[in-house]
């Protein structure tokens, strides 16, 4: 083996990589917030009586779940580009991951809704609560507890998915920064190894904080 590992260069680049990690977290978080909002709409739409809306919602969900994330990013970046809608790499990545998240989370929310027994709604209504009131005060909080673990998982997925930004030229998330450094120095292994460690730590951070949140929120 005539390759000498040169870790010092990699460690010197750590601050840049950590800034990249911050961008990664930013994209992941944004895509989760937007994705959750859209997912709730999709979950409601897929059960509503208006056929066109229901078809749209189901198509979105099935498309998001049965095609690769990388394909979705290409579609948003190149495909929309041919229609005249030019998104930069950051927005394209964000849009694609949000699209993906919304699709997966819609299923999660539908399952979560089913998990709350109908008898809870019945008990709330028999106390005189209106339908929306009962939903907000009784069903929603219980549903939140059920969907919390899948939401956490999806957040981890989102963080890992942001690495695909590099295929459409994103240079300021963690993978983009790492690739940039790689191209300039050809120390592929060292740089990407450190990036891997940073990703690992990020996912552990997310899971840890989620567990803490769950402990505080769901004391019952």
């Amino acid at each position: 083996m005539d390759y000498t590992f040169q870790w010092r260069a990699a460690f010197r680049a750590l601050p840049d990589m950590l800034w990249g990690a911050l961008v990664t977290l930013e994209v992941a978080l944004l895509s989760m917030v937007l994705g959750t909002f859209l997912a709730i709409l999709l979950a409601v739409a897929s059960g509503c009586r208006f056929r066109a809306l229901r078809a749209l919602a189901i198509s979105w969900v099935e498309l998001a779940r049965n095609t690769p994330a990388m394909f979705q990013i290409y579609m948003v970046y190149f495909g929309l580009g041919s229609l005249g809608i030019f998104l930069d790499s950051f927005l394209a990545l964000l849009a694609a991951i949000t699209f993906n998240n919304a699709g997966y989370l819609a299923e999660t929310f539908r399952g979560g809704l089913r998990a709350v027994p109908g008898t809870q709604m019945r008990a709330a209504r028999s106390l005189g609560m209106g339908q929306l009131q009962a939903f907000r005060l009784i069903v929603l909080p219980q549903m939140f507890r059920v969907v919390f673990p899948p939401l956490t998982n999806q957040m981890v997925w989102a963080i890992l998915m942001t690495s695909l930004g590099v295929v459409v030229g994103l240079t300021n998330d963690l993978t983009g920064v790492t690739q940039d450094l790689n191209v300039r120095s050809f120390r592929t292994f060292e740089f990407f190894a450190i990036a891997a460690v940073i990703y690992y730590l990020m996912t552990k951070l997310v899971i840890g904080s989620a567990r803490l949140m769950a402990w505080r929120l769901f004391r019952y």
Binding site: S163, T175, T178
Partner: peptide
């Protein structure tokens, strides 16, 4: 499971 596949391939 905690490192992006892309990076695993490169490494």
């Amino acid at each position: 499971r905690s490192v992006p596949l892309l990076i695993q391939f490169v490494l």
